[in-house]
Every structure is written in C-alpha cells, then in structure tokens.
C-alpha cells in the first residue's frame, strides 16, 4: 500500500494539485491556451475516430481469427499483440519508414492529420480484437443454428443475434482503445512532425510545456486528460455491468 502511494498516488495527486492550484479560472485559462486547446481537441477527436475504426476493423479481424481458417492463421493471431510489445518510439519509426518522406509506396503522410490517426491505429490495434475474440469463441453456436431453423438468413442472424451479444465487448475494447489513444506519445512524435495547431497531440504539447518549465500549464492539461480518461473508465465499468445482465 505504501509502495502504491509513493509511486502512483502521490505523484498523480501532485499533478492534479499543481494543475488546479490557482483556482478554476487559472486552470481553464491554461487549458484553453490556443495551442494546448488545439492539441486537446485534436487528441480527443482523433481518438474517437480511431476507437470507431477499431470497433469495425477489430471485430472483423476477431471474426476472421475465430471463424475462418487459413494457413498461417496462428502467426497472424500472435502478430496482433505486437503493438502491445513494441516500444512506442519504434512504432513511430516503423510507420515513418512506410508512410513518411522516404516511403516506398510513395505515400507521404508526414505532417498530416492522417498521420496521427495512422499512429494511433497502430498502437490500439489489439484492443478491440482481444476483447471481442474470447466472447466470439464462447458464443453458443446453437443460437445461430436456432435462428437459421427459424428462418433467419446469415445476415439477419448476425444483426439480430450475434451483434447484440458482441456489443459489450466491442464497446469495452473501444473504450480501452480511446483511453490509450488520448495518452499516446511515442508513436506520434516522429511521424506527425508535431506541428502545433495541426498535428500536435496533447502528450507532445504537455512535454513541450515541461521542457519550457511551464509546469503549471502542463499540469493543467494533464489533469484535463486524466479527467477524460477517468470518465471513460467509469463508463466502461458501467458497460461491463450492463453486458453481464443477460448471462
């Protein structure tokens, strides 16, 4: 408990303390400094978009991993976790190689907003896949067959039977992806060029403030991020409870 406090609780409390010390007006002022506000806006919007894309693609990938079979599937399955294990700066470098100025595909995304989305998509790849996969695995196939025997086509069955049962897992994965995205630093630092007002994410902005010794503003922006993350986590918990009510 002491360990936890020393390392986690007190420092975090210090951040919030520092950020809000001079009162709500000062806090708001620090948070709405043009470049900080822009970075926060960009971060939240990009993270929402990324969460959305992940809900779709993550479910598709989980579906293919569970229901389909092809040579090399287990390799693909292992690879999904790579973004978890890869250091974020390496992720950034890796994406820069393919989507930067020297791209062999002649696809230069550097310094664009799209690059932020690509970086975030990379690091959040596993989240929805790994929350949906176990649910799909445990899904009672009999339910689908019952639906067929009652006259439902595979499409209708997916929409009315499978999807509702996957929804809690999809949302929970999306929530995790979102909280990870808003916090992301390393992967965006190289590819995006960190142009203020354009491609600078919140974490980079905060880092800049720390470097220029403006610790209070950094703390304020950090507090804002923490609040958003906290809200999402609480919502996630509620979603989990709602999802279990039918089991």
């Amino acid at each position: 408990m002491l360990y936890l406090s020393l390392i986690v609780l007190i420092p975090l409390a210090a951040v919030v303390w520092r950020g809000t010390r001079r009162g709500p007006d000062a806090f708001w002022h620090a948070v709405t400094t043009p470049d900080t506000w822009a970075s926060l806006k960009l971060t939240v919007l990009a993270s929402l978009l990324v969460a959305l894309i992940n809900v779709v693609m993550g479910t598709v990938i989980a579906w293919v991993l569970v229901r389909d079979s092809f040579p090399g599937k287990s390799i693909v399955d292992t690879l999904i976790d790579l973004p978890f294990a890869l250091p974020t700066i390496v992720a950034g470098l890796v994406l820069l190689a393919l989507y930067g100025a020297t791209s062999p595909l002649h696809l230069n995304l550097a310094y664009t907003r799209a690059s932020v989305v690509v970086a975030l998509l990379f690091v959040t790849l596993p989240f929805v896949v790994r929350t949906v996969q176990p649910v799909l695995l445990e899904l009672d196939r009999d339910m689908e067959q019952a639906a067929y025997s009652l006259g439902a086509s595979p499409g209708v069955t997916f929409r009315r039977i499978i999807l509702p049962n996957l929804l809690p897992a999809m949302l929970s994965g999306a929530g995790l992806a979102f909280t990870r995205s808003i916090a992301e630093y390393g992967s965006t630092v190289l590819l995006t060029g960190n142009l203020p007002f354009k491609t600078e994410v919140a974490a980079v902005n905060i880092f800049g403030r720390i470097e220029s010794d403006d610790v209070t503003s950094a703390a304020a922006a950090s507090t804002a991020l923490l609040v958003v993350a906290f809200v999402v986590l609480v919502l996630l918990d509620l979603v989990q409870r709602w999802g279990v009510r039918h089991d």
Partner: peptide, 29 residues
C-alpha cells in the same frame, strides 16, 4: 438451406437468445 425447410428445431441446451426476453424469443421466427 435450413431457413427454407420450415422445420422447428429444439436444442439440448436450449439455444435461447439470451439478450431477448421470452416474448421476443418466441416471436423471433
């Protein structure tokens, strides 16, 4: 296809649509 045969099937482990009420389950077809 099973959809076109108009046979009713009852499974050993019920295969209930657990996210639907009893009413909606019966009404499904």
């Amino acid at each position: 296809a099973p959809q076109r045969r108009n046979v009713g099937f009852v499974f050993q482990h019920y295969a209930a649509f657990k996210h639907l009420t009893v009413y909606r389950n019966i009404a499904f077809g």
